[in-house]
Design a binder for these strands. Sequence first.
DNA 1: TAGAAATGTTTAG
DNA 2: TAAACCTTTCTAT
Length: 266
Amino acid sequence: MPEGHTIHRLAKDHTPLLVGRPVALASPQGRFATGAELLTGRVVERIDPYGKHLFYRFEGDLLLHVHLGLYGKWQGGFGPAPEPRGALRLRMTTPEHAWLDLRGPTACEVMTPPDRDAVLARLGPDPLRRDADPELAWARLSRSKRLIGELLMDQKVLAGIGNVYRAELLYRAGLSPFRPGVQVEREVWEPMWEDLRVLMRAGVRARRIVTTERVDRDRRSGTALRTDAHYVYRRHGLPCRRCGTEVRTQVMQQRNLFWCPTCQPA
DNA sequence: TAGAAATGTTTAG
DNA sequence: TAAACCTTTCTAT
């Protein structure tokens, strides 16, 4: 689930539930017990998504920082919350009887504004944010000898992109993951940035990553085909949707990379 | 029941 | 570069 589109979706979903309300926090698992106690009863002032990070600002200049990591998950509902099962890091409840459960995050911690600024300082522009400066990404990308497939995963270059968007963005651009950043032309990169914004915004709306035209069509007709959502991601060994060449995979930047050697020539 | 994998990041060596 | 960490889910035995 959690690339940047998920984080922005969560901020949109949680804002009407939490902002302006005093929230009760509990940590049935116990690992966030102290933080939950510190924040309980405070009003949530706003929720800011940035890359893969979520910041819930509480009154009193305190922030709840959440990073879902690889398998963190939020679930929620209205009415009586279910009996806590398994490892439940955090449960938030509102006076209106909305509840939100957080499991498995990499980060769930209380922060001060300077702490948050330190986190933001490590992030490049987030394509989903209006205030994103694409020149910053270009500056870091175009001066690096590292491979474009590595650079796209670096949150200091671009914040919010993950392994699915990396593979799909490169495929749609017809660009080899093995091209060094310094050898990516500006005329190639600029449309990629725009495409990434389009894809990630679509991901926020659809609540999942959809990069293929076929799925766009199917969604319009109300019959989304889950298996057709991607061009290359996790399609290792299957024929490329456009040319039929076998999609390849190899670990790059600690994650499985997928690409079509014909559509993305080295 | 065990093991692997998953849309991620940090720390150790 | 490798390992650790957080949790769930699916597959194999």
